[in-house]
Design a protein around this nucleic acid. Sequence first.
DNA 1: TGTATGGCTTTCGTATACAAATTGTATAGG
DNA 2: CCTATACAATTTGTATACGAAAGCCATACA
Lengths: 234, 234
Amino acid sequence: MTKHNKSFCAADLRARILSQDIAPGSPLDEATLTAEYNISRTPLREILHRLAGGGYVRLEENRGAKVESMDFATMRVFFQTAPLVYCSIAQQAAENRTSRQVAQLKDIQVAFVAATRAQDTQRAGLMNHDFHELIGEMAQNPYLLASLKRMLVDHTRLGQTFFNPQSAEDEARVQKSSEQHDAMISAIEAQEPSLAVDLTLQHWDLSRGQIERYVRPDPLPLDVISMKDRRDAV
Amino acid sequence: MTKHNKSFCAADLRARILSQDIAPGSPLDEATLTAEYNISRTPLREILHRLAGGGYVRLEENRGAKVESMDFATMRVFFQTAPLVYCSIAQQAAENRTSRQVAQLKDIQVAFVAATRAQDTQRAGLMNHDFHELIGEMAQNPYLLASLKRMLVDHTRLGQTFFNPQSAEDEARVQKSSEQHDAMISAIEAQEPSLAVDLTLQHWDLSRGQIERYVRPDPLPLDVISMKDRRDAV
DNA sequence: TGTATGGCTTTCGTATACAAATTGTATAGG
DNA sequence: CCTATACAATTTGTATACGAAAGCCATACA
């Protein structure tokens, strides 16, 4: 580790934030990071500013950098806005994609499938992220791309549990997600915007369900700490 | 000029880019700017990175910073996307605005009207920019806000001629634009989303017409250099 | 016992010096 | 006369040292 420490640091921080390896709200101490990645503070601060521009990090004057956190108000807005942005992007991606980009997308999908097969949750999440980000670039729309990228930061963090299947149903959903990716690639390659939009909506529904299950999981079994017993104990 | 040189530099560069005082595509030389604003290269580079994050500036590795340029492909996308983003923002602004923000918006509108009265084209453009950016913040939607901000950078640059009226009709349009602002403030304050959307569409149509007139102006009069004479001359 | 104030530590912001990379130019060879 | 290559000059990228601001803790006073 001598020369491309800077780009490695940037990519690694991004990956660690997306995978929640660094939790939302965590402070990012400059001294610690410079020691960890063996770069000096100047390039590190440039990286932090870039990550801040992309919505990964929040900078506060004289108070350092923190990983951007998600409150409930933002989550509500996230669910409101996602279909609009994702579908608009999908439509334009199908219209404007280049064949070179389609080839790239297929490569990413191969890597994504490999990661899910290998149970590499973190890499699967990152490859899924890159998959959707590349669709965003296919749309050739720098304005909506800005929205999409910001949404994906939060989406990837929220969906981190998705690629860590705990049950047979979970595994079936990951499989279905992968199949939807394949269908989206076909629709985009064939330049069929309305089909791409339909598939995107289905993909969103699947992902939304998973996030909802994560946010509102099954309650703890009542017979372990029964409400009645607790009332008696007080 | 001793201490807040940095924030001044950031604000001034932003204003000069938005007003096309620094033309799209212009190189931003570090040495020149550090001398001009009397700050050192480290904070200047941070400013350039921030401006790059906002879509004002493009950074290329080892090749410095240039003002972001607009090609024809992007302009086409701009016209496609603006109604969607502006209307979505307007609707949510009317739903989610705080009364503090409404007060701020009125202040900006006062400054905007004053600038148009004073024929201060550059300041009018900037106040118009801030007006629409604040509406973006009212929407409380960080995802769409990213799109809006990027659109406004290009919109403000394209519309730079708008507030420099050359004819009675031009002046009437500026007046109408200002009245539309007032109506938008009312709709947002009264929390009437659908009215806000209607007004936004009208405002967009007015602005779009002005941009189209700017991009495709009246041709030069043919009797100055007649086509016939030119053919004979060759 | 609670609060306010003082210095003390830690962390962030800026300047400057140095290293690396790119571009322009001049010269030699075809 | 054109082209290629090497060297010089300019410009960008990085490291480090110094200055400034914020947070913390202890102590003193109400």
